[in-house]
Amino acid sequence: MTVQPHIRISQAGKVFSSGDREVVALEDINLSIASGEFICLLGPSGCGKSTLLNAVAGFSLPTTGEILVDGNPVQSPGPDRGMVFQEYALFPWMTVEKNIAFGLEIQKQPKAQIKEKVDALLKMLNLQDFRDRYPKDLSGGMRQRVAIARVLALDSPIMLMDDPFGALDSLTRRNLQDELLRIWMEFKKTIIFVTHSIEESIYLADRIVVMTYRPGTIKKDVSVTMPHPRDPSSAEFNDLKKELSLLVMEEQSRHHQEEIKTPAAD
C-alpha cells in the first residue's frame, strides 16, 4: 500500500580523510522523500547538509549506505537531478540565452524546440530583456534566475539547491523564494534545498530536516503544514521558528566549541 518514495537515502555515511585526520561528515542518514515534496536541509555550516546534497547529486558518493532515485542507485551527476549552486555557476562565456539552452543542446534537441523552451523560460522568469547579456552584466538575483531557468529547461523532476539565495539581499531573496514556490507548485518538482536560514526553511518547505554538527546526522524531521503563502509574522510561524532556533543553536554552539579547540581546521 505504501508508495515507493521518489528519493530514498538509507544508512548513508560519508568520511573525508585528509592525511591522518578523518572527518565523519555524514553518519547513518535515513530519509525518504516523496515525489513533489519540498525538503529543506537545515543546520549550521559544517553539519554535512551540502555533503548530503552533493551525494544525492552524484558529485561525491557516500562511503557507506546508498541513495536511490526511483529505485536506482545514484552513481554520477545527471540531468534528472538539476542542481542550482549558491555561486550561480553560470558559464560566463555564454549569454543568458545560451546558458539556458546549454542543457538542451547537450541532449541534441532540435533548434526550434530549444528556442521555444528558452523563450518560455525567459518569459516565466522575467529575463526577456537580458537574453543576449553575459552573466557579468547581471545582478546576483538575475544570475540565480538564469541558473534556475537552466535547470528548469531540463525538465528534471528533481531540483537540488545548495543555499541558492544565501548570497542575495533580503528583498531579492524573498522575491526569488516566492518565484521558486510558484515554480514548484506549477511543475510539481521534488526539491531538496540546503539553507542555514531558519526563516527561509519555514517559508518554503513541506519538511525541514535539522542536521547535527559533526558527525552529520538527522536531529529532527519537522513537517510544516501551514498553507502557502506563509506569513512570517504569524504566531504559528514564530513558534516553529523558536523551536527550530533552539535546535540549530545547540549545533551551532557545538560548531563554535570545536572551532575554538582546533583553530587551524578549516
Binding site: 547529486a57 558529485f59 551527476p77 537531478r81 549552486f85 555557476a89 558559464f91 546549454f102 542543457g103
Partner: peptide
C-alpha cells in the same frame, strides 16, 4: 571546478 560540476550535472559528454 564549479563550471565542470555544473556541466556534469547538465549531462555534458566529454566532448561537450
Amino acid at each position: 571546478s564549479i563550471y565542470i560540476r555544473a556541466a556534469r550535472s547538465l549531462g555534458a559528454s566529454q566532448t561537450m
